[in-house]
Protein backbone atom coordinates (compact mmCIF):
# COMPACT_ATOMS: atom_id res chain seq x y z
CA UNK A 1 0.00 0.00 0.00
CA UNK A 2 2.82 2.40 0.84
CA UNK A 3 4.12 1.96 -2.69
CA UNK A 4 0.97 3.50 -4.10
CA UNK A 5 1.20 6.59 -1.91
CA UNK A 6 2.59 9.67 -3.64
CA UNK A 7 6.32 10.19 -2.95
CA UNK A 8 7.55 13.51 -1.68
CA UNK A 9 8.75 15.69 -4.53
CA UNK A 10 12.56 16.00 -4.24
CA UNK A 11 12.12 19.75 -4.59
CA UNK A 12 10.16 19.87 -1.34
CA UNK A 13 12.92 17.98 0.44
CA UNK A 14 15.64 20.14 -1.10
CA UNK A 15 13.85 23.32 -0.03
CA UNK A 16 13.58 21.95 3.50
CA UNK A 17 17.30 21.14 3.48
CA UNK A 18 18.12 24.54 2.03
CA UNK A 19 16.30 26.21 4.90
CA UNK A 20 18.31 24.07 7.31
CA UNK A 21 21.57 24.96 5.58
CA UNK A 22 20.87 28.67 5.57
CA UNK A 23 20.25 28.54 9.32
CA UNK A 24 23.78 27.18 9.83
CA UNK A 25 27.03 29.09 10.07
CA UNK A 26 27.60 29.80 6.36
CA UNK A 27 31.29 28.96 6.50
CA UNK A 28 30.26 25.41 7.41
CA UNK A 29 28.03 25.01 4.35
CA UNK A 30 29.46 23.47 1.18
CA UNK A 31 27.15 23.46 -1.80
CA UNK A 32 27.09 20.53 -4.17
CA UNK A 33 25.01 19.36 -7.10
CA UNK A 34 24.12 15.90 -8.30
CA UNK A 35 22.77 15.24 -11.79
CA UNK A 36 21.06 11.94 -12.55
CA UNK A 37 21.75 11.21 -16.20
CA UNK A 38 19.25 8.36 -16.15
CA UNK A 39 16.50 10.86 -15.40
CA UNK A 40 17.61 13.69 -17.68
CA UNK A 41 15.36 13.79 -20.75
CA UNK A 42 17.40 16.40 -22.62
CA UNK A 43 14.68 19.05 -22.67
CA UNK A 44 17.19 21.89 -22.13
CA UNK A 45 14.77 23.56 -19.72
CA UNK A 46 17.60 24.04 -17.21
CA UNK A 47 19.79 25.75 -19.83
CA UNK A 48 16.97 28.11 -20.83
CA UNK A 49 15.93 28.80 -17.24
CA UNK A 50 19.56 29.61 -16.39
CA UNK A 51 19.91 31.94 -19.38
CA UNK A 52 16.70 33.67 -18.39
CA UNK A 53 17.51 33.89 -14.68
CA UNK A 54 20.98 35.33 -15.32
CA UNK A 55 19.95 37.30 -18.44
CA UNK A 56 22.80 35.77 -20.40
CA UNK A 57 23.74 37.64 -23.55
CA UNK A 58 24.48 36.12 -26.94
CA UNK A 59 27.19 33.47 -26.82
CA UNK A 60 27.09 33.15 -23.05
CA UNK A 61 25.84 29.91 -21.54
CA UNK A 62 26.31 28.62 -18.03
CA UNK A 63 24.66 25.24 -18.32
CA UNK A 64 24.55 23.72 -21.79
CA UNK A 65 23.16 20.20 -22.14
CA UNK A 66 25.34 17.93 -24.23
CA UNK A 67 23.97 14.97 -26.08
CA UNK A 68 25.88 11.75 -26.50
CA UNK A 69 24.96 8.96 -28.86
CA UNK A 70 26.52 5.57 -28.27
CA UNK A 71 26.65 2.27 -30.09
CA UNK A 72 25.81 1.38 -33.67
CA UNK A 73 22.42 0.71 -35.18
CA UNK A 74 20.34 -1.11 -34.06
CA UNK A 75 22.08 -1.21 -30.67
CA UNK A 76 22.15 2.49 -29.99
CA UNK A 77 21.82 4.62 -26.89
CA UNK A 78 21.44 8.29 -26.17
CA UNK A 79 22.11 10.20 -23.01
CA UNK A 80 22.38 13.77 -21.92
CA UNK A 81 24.97 15.59 -19.92
CA UNK A 82 24.01 18.96 -18.43
CA UNK A 83 27.24 20.81 -17.63
CA UNK A 84 27.17 23.60 -15.06
CA UNK A 85 30.40 24.90 -13.53
CA UNK A 86 31.91 21.99 -11.60
CA UNK A 87 32.79 24.31 -8.65
CA UNK A 88 36.04 22.34 -8.31
CA UNK A 89 37.75 21.95 -4.96
CA UNK A 90 41.00 22.53 -6.82
CA UNK A 91 39.94 24.89 -9.61
CA UNK A 92 42.54 25.48 -12.35
CA UNK A 93 40.74 28.68 -13.35
CA UNK A 94 41.44 30.39 -10.03
CA UNK A 95 45.20 30.00 -9.84
CA UNK A 96 45.78 31.35 -13.36
CA UNK A 97 43.84 34.60 -12.92
CA UNK A 98 46.53 37.31 -12.95
CA UNK A 99 44.51 39.86 -10.95
CA UNK A 100 42.80 37.67 -8.30
CA UNK A 101 39.41 38.41 -9.84
CA UNK A 102 38.16 34.88 -9.18
CA UNK A 103 38.23 32.72 -6.08
CA UNK A 104 36.33 30.09 -4.13
CA UNK A 105 33.92 31.55 -1.62
CA UNK A 106 33.26 30.13 1.83
CA UNK A 107 30.56 27.79 0.51
CA UNK A 108 32.90 26.33 -2.14
CA UNK A 109 31.46 28.23 -5.09
CA UNK A 110 33.95 29.75 -7.52
CA UNK A 111 32.97 33.38 -8.02
CA UNK A 112 34.14 36.25 -10.22
CA UNK A 113 34.56 39.90 -9.31
CA UNK A 114 33.29 41.57 -12.47
CA UNK A 115 34.80 44.88 -11.43
CA UNK A 116 38.30 43.42 -11.18
CA UNK A 117 38.36 41.05 -14.18
CA UNK A 118 40.47 42.36 -17.09
CA UNK A 119 38.98 40.02 -19.69
CA UNK A 120 42.20 38.17 -20.57
CA UNK A 121 40.28 34.87 -20.92
CA UNK A 122 43.11 32.88 -19.34
CA UNK A 123 40.56 31.22 -17.03
CA UNK A 124 38.54 30.13 -20.06
CA UNK A 125 41.57 28.36 -21.48
CA UNK A 126 42.41 26.84 -18.09
CA UNK A 127 39.01 25.31 -17.34
CA UNK A 128 39.11 21.67 -18.47
CA UNK A 129 35.30 21.57 -18.67
CA UNK A 130 34.84 24.63 -20.89
CA UNK A 131 32.59 26.00 -18.17
CA UNK A 132 33.57 29.64 -18.50
CA UNK A 133 32.34 32.05 -21.13
CA UNK A 134 33.45 35.46 -22.21
CA UNK A 135 30.74 38.07 -22.64
CA UNK A 136 31.50 39.79 -25.92
CA UNK A 137 28.48 42.08 -25.60
CA UNK A 138 25.56 42.46 -27.94
CA UNK A 139 21.87 41.67 -27.79
CA UNK A 140 19.79 38.79 -29.03
CA UNK A 141 17.30 41.35 -30.24
CA UNK A 142 19.71 43.24 -32.50
CA UNK A 143 17.95 42.06 -35.64
CA UNK A 144 14.42 42.05 -34.30
CA UNK A 145 12.18 44.04 -36.68
CA UNK A 146 11.03 47.46 -35.56
CA UNK A 147 8.34 48.79 -37.84
CA UNK A 148 5.38 51.09 -37.31
CA UNK A 149 2.42 49.10 -36.12
CA UNK A 150 4.43 46.38 -34.46
CA UNK A 151 3.29 46.02 -30.88
CA UNK A 152 6.40 44.15 -29.75
CA UNK A 153 9.33 45.42 -31.78
CA UNK A 154 13.06 45.60 -31.11
CA UNK A 155 12.80 48.30 -28.47
CA UNK A 156 10.22 46.51 -26.40
CA UNK A 157 12.16 43.25 -26.66
CA UNK A 158 15.44 44.90 -25.80
CA UNK A 159 13.97 46.57 -22.76
CA UNK A 160 13.93 43.10 -21.20
CA UNK A 161 17.42 42.23 -22.37
CA UNK A 162 18.93 45.48 -21.19
CA UNK A 163 18.42 44.64 -17.56
CA UNK A 164 21.40 42.78 -16.15
CA UNK A 165 20.62 40.04 -13.65
CA UNK A 166 21.58 40.67 -10.01
CA UNK A 167 24.39 38.10 -10.15
CA UNK A 168 26.37 37.74 -6.95
CA UNK A 169 23.52 39.66 -5.32
CA UNK A 170 24.72 42.94 -6.82
CA UNK A 171 23.16 45.36 -9.24
CA UNK A 172 24.98 45.59 -12.58
CA UNK A 173 22.85 48.30 -14.14
CA UNK A 174 21.85 48.21 -17.77
CA UNK A 175 23.53 45.86 -20.20
CA UNK A 176 25.71 47.82 -22.56
CA UNK A 177 29.40 48.64 -22.41
CA UNK A 178 29.94 48.05 -18.69
CA UNK A 179 30.58 44.80 -16.84
CA UNK A 180 29.83 41.98 -17.22
CA UNK A 181 30.44 42.73 -20.91
CA UNK A 182 34.13 42.08 -21.55
CA UNK A 183 34.39 39.80 -18.51
CA UNK A 184 34.61 36.10 -17.97
CA UNK A 185 31.31 34.68 -16.74
CA UNK A 186 30.27 31.36 -15.28
CA UNK A 187 27.68 29.41 -13.35
CA UNK A 188 27.64 30.39 -9.68
CA UNK A 189 24.91 28.06 -8.41
CA UNK A 190 22.56 31.09 -8.47
CA UNK A 191 24.09 32.55 -5.30
CA UNK A 192 21.67 35.46 -5.49
CA UNK A 193 18.75 33.01 -5.26
CA UNK A 194 20.33 30.94 -2.49
CA UNK A 195 20.74 34.10 -0.46
CA UNK A 196 16.98 34.55 -0.38
CA UNK A 197 16.17 30.90 0.20
CA UNK A 198 15.57 29.76 -3.37
CA UNK A 199 17.16 26.84 -5.14
CA UNK A 200 19.17 27.47 -8.34
CA UNK A 201 16.96 27.98 -11.37
CA UNK A 202 18.28 24.87 -13.13
CA UNK A 203 17.13 22.77 -10.18
CA UNK A 204 13.63 24.18 -9.96
CA UNK A 205 13.10 24.06 -13.74
CA UNK A 206 14.18 20.43 -14.17
CA UNK A 207 11.02 18.65 -15.30
CA UNK A 208 12.57 15.21 -14.86
CA UNK A 209 13.79 16.04 -11.34
CA UNK A 210 17.23 15.01 -12.48
CA UNK A 211 19.16 17.81 -10.76
CA UNK A 212 19.68 17.82 -7.02
CA UNK A 213 21.25 20.52 -4.92
CA UNK A 214 22.17 20.94 -1.30
CA UNK A 215 24.73 21.10 1.46
CA UNK A 216 27.18 18.22 1.15
CA UNK A 217 28.33 18.68 4.75
CA UNK A 218 24.82 17.81 5.92
CA UNK A 219 24.81 13.99 6.21
CA UNK A 220 21.04 13.94 5.98
CA UNK A 221 20.82 15.90 2.76
CA UNK A 222 19.69 14.41 -0.52
CA UNK A 223 22.95 15.32 -2.26
CA UNK A 224 25.02 13.64 0.46
CA UNK A 225 22.89 10.55 0.05
CA UNK A 226 23.24 10.52 -3.73
CA UNK A 227 26.98 11.30 -3.72
CA UNK A 228 27.44 8.04 -1.85
CA UNK A 229 25.72 6.08 -4.60
CA UNK A 230 27.88 3.57 -6.51
CA UNK A 231 26.54 5.24 -9.65
CA UNK A 232 28.12 8.57 -8.68
CA UNK A 233 31.13 9.85 -10.57
CA UNK A 234 32.72 13.14 -11.57
CA UNK A 235 33.95 14.38 -14.93
CA UNK A 236 37.67 14.18 -15.71
CA UNK A 237 38.45 12.94 -12.22
CA UNK A 238 41.97 12.12 -13.37
CA UNK A 239 42.83 15.83 -13.48
CA UNK A 240 42.53 16.14 -9.72
CA UNK A 241 40.18 19.12 -9.86
CA UNK A 242 37.73 17.39 -7.44
CA UNK A 243 34.43 18.73 -8.81
CA UNK A 244 31.46 19.43 -6.56
CA UNK A 245 29.08 18.47 -9.34
CA UNK A 246 28.52 14.73 -9.36
CA UNK A 247 26.80 12.64 -11.97
CA UNK A 248 24.76 9.47 -11.53
CA UNK A 249 25.56 7.33 -14.53
Amino acid sequence: MSGSLPMEDPLVRMYRELKRALAKDQSQVKWAMVIDQAKCIGCHACAVACASENRLGPGVVYRPVMEEETGTYPNVGRRFLPRPCMQCENPPCVSVCPVTATWKNAQGVTVIDYTRCIGCRYCLAACPYGARCSDFGGFYTSRTPQEPGLIQGRYAARAYEQQNAPEYAKSWGQRGKGSPVGNARKCHFCLHRLEVGQLPSCVTSCVGRATYFGDRTDPGSLVSELMGSPRAHTLKAELGTRPNVHYLA
Binding site: V96, P98, C117, I118, G119, C120, F136, S179, N183, A184
Partner: peptide, 23 residues
Protein backbone atom coordinates in the same frame (compact mmCIF):
# COMPACT_ATOMS: atom_id res chain seq x y z
CA UNK B 1 43.86 45.49 -27.38
CA UNK B 2 42.91 41.83 -27.01
CA UNK B 3 41.73 42.30 -23.43
CA UNK B 4 38.03 42.53 -22.75
CA UNK B 5 38.60 45.28 -20.20
CA UNK B 6 42.01 46.78 -20.96
CA UNK B 7 41.28 49.86 -18.84
CA UNK B 8 41.72 47.68 -15.75
CA UNK B 9 45.28 46.63 -16.50
CA UNK B 10 46.34 48.51 -13.38
CA UNK B 11 44.96 45.49 -11.50
CA UNK B 12 48.17 43.69 -12.44
CA UNK B 13 49.76 46.02 -9.89
CA UNK B 14 46.96 46.56 -7.36
CA UNK B 15 45.64 43.01 -7.05
CA UNK B 16 48.33 40.69 -8.41
CA UNK B 17 48.16 36.93 -8.19
CA UNK B 18 51.55 35.35 -7.64
CA UNK B 19 50.21 31.94 -8.69
CA UNK B 20 49.36 33.16 -12.18
CA UNK B 21 51.91 32.68 -14.98
CA UNK B 22 50.30 35.68 -16.67
CA UNK B 23 51.23 37.92 -13.76
Amino acid sequence: SDLGRFERMFNFVFSPSLTSPMF
